[in-house]
Design a protein around this nucleic acid. Structure first.
Lengths: 107, 107
DNA sequence: CGGCAATATATGTTTATCCGTCTATATATC
DNA sequence: GATATATAGACGGATAAACATATATTGCCG
């Protein structure tokens, strides 16, 4: 049962990796070189993190000449939103049932 | 810069721990014993995970006699929602700026 | 063609973190 | 004294992050 949530949480749990993703969200498409310049880690490491982000569907790559441009793929956050609202939903429905119960007890 | 996001993502990244939280969301308040019975791991491990969840603000505990009841604390998911919408917001604003630019170029 | 630039990928290694076990033990509470 | 939970220790194993380095690939350019 290793679902999408699992990979998402795991992928975003690493600070270096999440920082890369955040930068792509803030600043839009960036080349590996540009990302490496401010990532504080070596280029191979950046490439590896980008590969993982891509595997999780969080980024897309676009080749242009000898450069690769990466950009955030926001749709990939949907499972995260779903999960969150599902959790909130469970809570809410339990709350509703409680309210319901109290209402019936009141009568 | 180890913010709330960091702890949240890290805490929810572990499947066992996330499963505990999900169960508390779905089924409401549970004792450690009840959680242990279906967690597939030993009681000390369950207690440790609960302690981490509590540290992240994701659960609350309530002592009743010799039992401890845990319940999900949904407010703790707020930073997660904030982060997500922030990322979406960055994306959106970049999109807006692009639209703006195109509009001006059109004139 | 030759060579440099940008990136991906593979290696070997080190280090660190984390999860789990089992086994206490401390602390309440019943 | 038995029960429920928390906490701690020693331990093993898995995972993962980082380094450094090397190399393969591809594209650009002279």
């Amino acid at each position: 049962m290793a679902e999408a949530h699992d990979m998402l949480f795991r992928t975003l749990a690493d600070p270096t990796r999440r920082a890369l993703f955040e930068r792509l969200c803030r600043e839009g498409e960036k080349t590996v070189g540009a990302l490496t310049a401010q990532a504080g880690v070596s280029q191979p490491v950046v490439s590896k993190h980008l590969a993982l982000l891509k595997q999780a569907g969080l980024v897309r790559d676009r080749h242009e000449g000898r450069q690769t441009h990466y950009s955030a793929q926001l749709d990939a956050l949907a499972p995260l939103v779903d999960w969150t609202s599902q959790m909130a939903g469970f809570w809410q429905s339990r709350f509703d049932r409680l309210e319901d119960l109290l209402k019936r007890m009141d009568q």
